[in-house]
Design a protein around this nucleic acid. Sequence first.
DNA 1: ACCTTCACTTGATATAGATCAAGTGAATTT
DNA 2: AAATTCACTTGATCTATATCAAGTGAAGGT
Lengths: 191, 191
Amino acid sequence: MYPFLRQYLNSITSSVISDEEFQHIEEAFAPKIMKKRQFLLHEGTICRYMAFIVKGAMRQYAIDEKGNEHVVRFGVEGWWMSDRESLRMSKPTKYNIEALEDCDLLIATNEQLNGVKEKSPLFFKMAHILDERHSTAAQHRIEASMNYTAEEKLKDLIENYPGFLQRFPQNMLASYLGISPETFSRVRKNI
Amino acid sequence: MYPFLRQYLNSITSSVISDEEFQHIEEAFAPKIMKKRQFLLHEGTICRYMAFIVKGAMRQYAIDEKGNEHVVRFGVEGWWMSDRESLRMSKPTKYNIEALEDCDLLIATNEQLNGVKEKSPLFFKMAHILDERHSTAAQHRIEASMNYTAEEKLKDLIENYPGFLQRFPQNMLASYLGISPETFSRVRKNI
DNA sequence: ACCTTCACTTGATATAGATCAAGTGAATTT
DNA sequence: AAATTCACTTGATCTATATCAAGTGAAGGT
């Protein structure tokens, strides 16, 4: 569990964290195992944890008034899952986070998270870098969803996240891209 | 110029900044006046400044392969304009930032920005809060652009940014929402 | 081993919104 | 003041993609 997080942290920050500093991180994060189909977060509740995926895959989705699911994001090894707004502000979330495979997670509460950020400069740096990445990824997604055709969206997905196509069901990928499963299937043939 | 930034900072952080602390901010930011149609940032160049709008309005847009403009965001009094990725990483931007009205700005380079963040805890806090807001706004925009009809997009714009409708030309607003100017015009009649 | 569900495909039809095109009035330029 | 450009509207078509519907094979449950 922890060695993977450690290596991840080193890689993101281009540094080598000391044993002492990493100790703080180990103390803050607790391991959690989730079975496929279990939920880390339910709509209407308050998000309590930031989760780092050591093994497995998850998805975050919302349900609209008509009962349709909208996949907001996927997570695999080395990704973080949470509703940060709900976590930070302690307000009810509109999202569900579900394990799509059996998962090994490392989880921390908001308080623990703030604690590590204070105690570990490298963890703090990592958080910043992730914020930046998250923000540019969001910008890209906005532009893709507005300007790309269905085919371009799929190509973009394959390019940016190869592996997703084999790992996740097409109806979920279609939802993530904002196209219908049928269009997804048809467009897929032409590639 | 500066008093507006000061008041803005107090309001965002729910605090009252001291004269000494605000001094650091004044030192970091330089006033800049821009005439309508002038550019703060050109595609292909490296973004040098983070700009705070004291007066006026701007837009940030990209141009695709077909030569079509895509408005990414607008800015008015109390908003920040920049391409943060380009600013932070010193990499060429794909965006243009143009003054849509005569503007009064306060600008700082990346180094100056980092300097103030170190020297002023409140400024640092503000930056964090803005990051959070930016991130939830981006999430909302993704969901809106994927799931909303043209009419819902317009209603959402009116609700979230009243004033934009009077202040910006419809073709730019349409581009921002990812719909055609004609659809914008038609949908507008029905509200 | 059988039944049921589910993921995906394929075809037919419907539709929101894009594109094309023409016209109007206001604003800007000469 | 005339000419030109520009922002917007309105109408007519076109098109990408959604929706509806039926079928297939594989996977999972009993």
